[in-house]
Design a protein around this nucleic acid. Sequence first.
DNA 1: ACCTGAACACCGTTCAAGT
DNA 2: ACCTGAACACCGTTCAAGT
Lengths: 212, 212
Amino acid sequence: MSQPARTPRKRRSYHHGDLRRALLDEAVAMIHAEGVEAVTVREIGARLGVSRTALYRHFADKRALLEAVATEGFAALRERLASAWEGTGRGRAGFEAMGFAYVRFALDSPAHYRVMFGGFVDRKTRGAELAGEATAAFGTLVEALAALQRDGSARGDATLLMARYVWAVVHGVAMLAVAGQIPEAGGVEAMTRYAIERLQAAILVDAEGARS
Amino acid sequence: MSQPARTPRKRRSYHHGDLRRALLDEAVAMIHAEGVEAVTVREIGARLGVSRTALYRHFADKRALLEAVATEGFAALRERLASAWEGTGRGRAGFEAMGFAYVRFALDSPAHYRVMFGGFVDRKTRGAELAGEATAAFGTLVEALAALQRDGSARGDATLLMARYVWAVVHGVAMLAVAGQIPEAGGVEAMTRYAIERLQAAILVDAEGARS
DNA sequence: ACCTGAACACCGTTCAAGT
DNA sequence: ACCTGAACACCGTTCAAGT
């Protein structure tokens, strides 16, 4: 026990199983602060006080690390969408809540969002886990729309088509917001409100039960 | 003149002013074929039979090359949008034509589209030329919507808000399409048709002159 | 003007070696 | 098991030198 205390006891114990967690968190922090391009295997190691090859004990390569970030992002998004839907009675209000939850997720976790949709993880080389989480997140929306169709709140169009449309709209708004294309104070909120209102007008059926 | 004919006469004459053009075209081709990540200053030079530093005679750095690709993309997009609008009588039909033109542009030029919206050119370091072309392309849409509002075809909402909404929708659809998220045969066309139809329902006013 | 090769400071990744 | 440093094959970019 005469070994010098190279790592003071306060240090996170990467040697006890959470290096993977630390690598993921550090990657997210770096993406958030400086963009995906700034993420470097060597720099992550340096920041964690670890060798630059330590990462390969937990991920096959750099792409696998980014894929894991994306996977966690989809899981978090699914959770947010599901609790928005379920927390508001699974009806018209739930639809609206899901829309806001989606955009809020993108704004709260722009780093995750960037990796999820920035095309850094090629569709072809995508692992099953990522594909599964992405499908699950989308599935939340599909199921919500199906429920709204069942009780007559949503139009009778093909559910998949409608779901993709809704996804395209919220994704488009989120991209504009995350990319900083809505610079005015409160602009993002106003835009999100407007978008969801217009989306409801296009997708939901009048409360009085009118059909179209 | 005993010099060996190192460059057979059929070769494009990069020495006469079109190396810049050739660099841009080669970059686009590489992005198209292998993605932005595969674009390498050295590889572009090799493919054009030119030194790996020849590029720096025409662009400040690699980022400037990608920025130029994005700038040309926005110029082409603006042209397509403007001619769609003007070629269809600048009315309701023009709005629809612009929507299709937008998605078609993304599908025809996925390489340009990727660079334009992939976040490779940071907003802060963006040059005036790129910003100008992007604004001009968006301006085409704003002006079209303003015209539709003037003749009572479009809702009276804030024009900027409406324009951003329309942009978000077509951008969302284009992203889904370019990312290959609509795999079924004819799926992209069906999706585009549906999206534009629902967009019109949300943004335009009934032909009978109803207000809302 | 335009192009070149050598050189520099970086990358991601592999691997034999340590504990 | 987990971590390490040295090494390899790449990057983007600079620069003195050539035509």
